Computed example of a mutant assay.
Amino acid sequence: MNVMTSRGARYLVLVSCVAAVSACGLPRSGPNKREIFASSVLQQGDAFVVTVNDRVTRATSVVPDLSFPQSFASAGRVTADIISPGDVLNLQIYENVRDEPLLSVAGERVSVLTDVQVDDKGFIFVPYAGRVRAAGRTPDQLRATITKELDTQTPDPQVMVARVAGDGSTVSVSGGVAAQGVYPIERPSRTLSGMLATAGGVAIQPSVAQVRVTRGGTTRKIWLQDLYENPGTDIALRPGDKIVVEEDRRAYVALGATGTQTRVPFDTQTLSALEAIAQVGGLNTNLADPTGVFVFRNEPDVIANKVLGRNDLTGDQRMVYVLDLTQPMGMFHARDFVVRDGDTVYVTEAPYVQWQKTIGAITGTATAADTFSSLSGN
C-alpha cells in the first residue's frame, strides 16, 4: 500500500511539473522558424516573409549614395591672387620726391603699411587715397587703383601690394583629423584632399571614414576612400566651407543563435549577410538552425513593390528575408544579400535544441519527483 502511494505521489508530481513546463514554455532566444512563418501576411500576419534568391538580392542591393552635388564639383579653385574680406595686405609705396614726400618723412622715399586688413565690406584705407575697394581684385589690380589715386598728389608713385594669409579665404576642419582648426586656403590646400593633409590627415579608420562638407545651406558627404580613388570628388574649396570627418554611424543588430548578440557597427561601405554573421562569430554550432537565418527590415515601398512584384504598396513595409545556409546557392545568396542600416539579423535555434531542453526539464522534474517521494515516504 505504501509502495503504491509512493509511486502515485511520484507520478502526480511528474505530471504536475511537466504541465507547468508546458504552460510556462522553455527558455529560448526568440521565435522559432515556424512562428516567424506564421507571422507572414499570407497567414494573416503583419510582415512579408520572402525567401532570398538572385532576384531579391538584386532588388535589395541598395547602398548609401554619398556624393557631392554638381555645384560643388563645378566650383573653380580659389586663386591665391584674389583678395577677400578679412585678408591681410602689406603695402609699399615709393615716391619720386625726397624733400617733401607725401607719405613718409623727409629723406625717406618709401612708406611701408603692414597688416592692412580688408574690412567686411571689402575696403581698405590708404592715406591720401581714402577707402579703396580691395575685395574681388588681384594684388596687381589693387596696385593700379592705389597708384591712380595717389598719382594726382605725388609724382609717379610706385606701389607694391602683397597678400598674406588672413581670415578671408579660410575653411574649418573638425572631427576625425589629427589637427582640428581654421585654415587659410593656400596654394597646397585649395582642394579637399589638400586641406585634409594640411590638417594632419584623417585620424580614424579610412574604410569607415566619411567627409562632410557644408557650403552655404547645402551639406553633402562622400566616403574618404572615394575621395582618394576618384579624382572627380576632390572638389575645390570655397571660403567659409565647413569640413567634418566622421565615422560611419550605420549598424545592425545580431540576435539568436549567433556567436554573440549585440549591436554591430559597419566596418566596410557594403556588408553582406554572410559577412554580418561572420562579424559576430558565425553561427553557434550547438544551437543554430542554418536553415533559419532571417533578416528583419522596414523596407521602403519602392523596393518592397519590386521584391514582391507589386505596385500597390505605399509606405515602409515590414519585410522578413529568409536564408538557408545548408544549400550551396543559399551561401551565395547570403554572400550577395546586402545588410543595411537598422537591420536585425536573427538566427533561430535548431529544433533538437528545444527537445533537449524539454528532456532536460522532464528528467529534472523526475528527479524532483523522486526526491519528493522519498521525503513523503519518510
Rank of each mutant, 00 (worst) to 15 (best):
F296I: 01
Q180S: 15
V126Q: 00
T152N: 01
T344E: 05
V320H: 08
E186D: 09
R238T: 10
N286G: 14
V63W: 11
R250H: 06
D248H: 07
D119H: 00
V52N: 05
R215H: 05
A80M: 09
S272T: 11
K148Q: 15
L237N: 07
S39P: 04
Q225T: 15
M1F: 13
P231H: 01
L283H: 01
V164N: 14
M195Y: 12
R163E: 12
V18I: 13
S272H: 05
G176A: 12
N32I: 06
I82N: 09
V159T: 03
D115P: 05
F68K: 08
G256E: 01
R212Q: 12
R77Q: 13
V339A: 05
Q158L: 07
D316H: 07
T314P: 11
A47L: 02
V18Y: 03
I277T: 10
I222A: 09
V49N: 06
T367A: 09
D46G: 12
F296R: 00
A350Q: 05
P85V: 10
G30C: 05
L142W: 02
V126W: 00
L142H: 08
R143E: 12
V177W: 00
P85Q: 06
V295N: 06
V105H: 11
D115Y: 06
S207A: 15
N53D: 15
Y321F: 10
R190D: 11
G259K: 00
G86K: 01
V264L: 02
S104M: 02
G292H: 02
A304V: 09
N284I: 01
G136S: 07
S67E: 04
P351K: 03
E349A: 03
D120M: 03
E299A: 11
N90A: 08
K357I: 08
G282R: 01
M195N: 14
G360I: 04
A288E: 01
M329K: 11
T198R: 15
E246C: 10
L142I: 04
F68N: 07
V18M: 08
T285C: 09
T219K: 06
V78K: 06
V253F: 02
Q210P: 04
Q210D: 04
G30P: 04
E229R: 15
P351D: 14
T79W: 03
L142G: 11
D115F: 08
D341L: 01
G309E: 06
I362H: 07
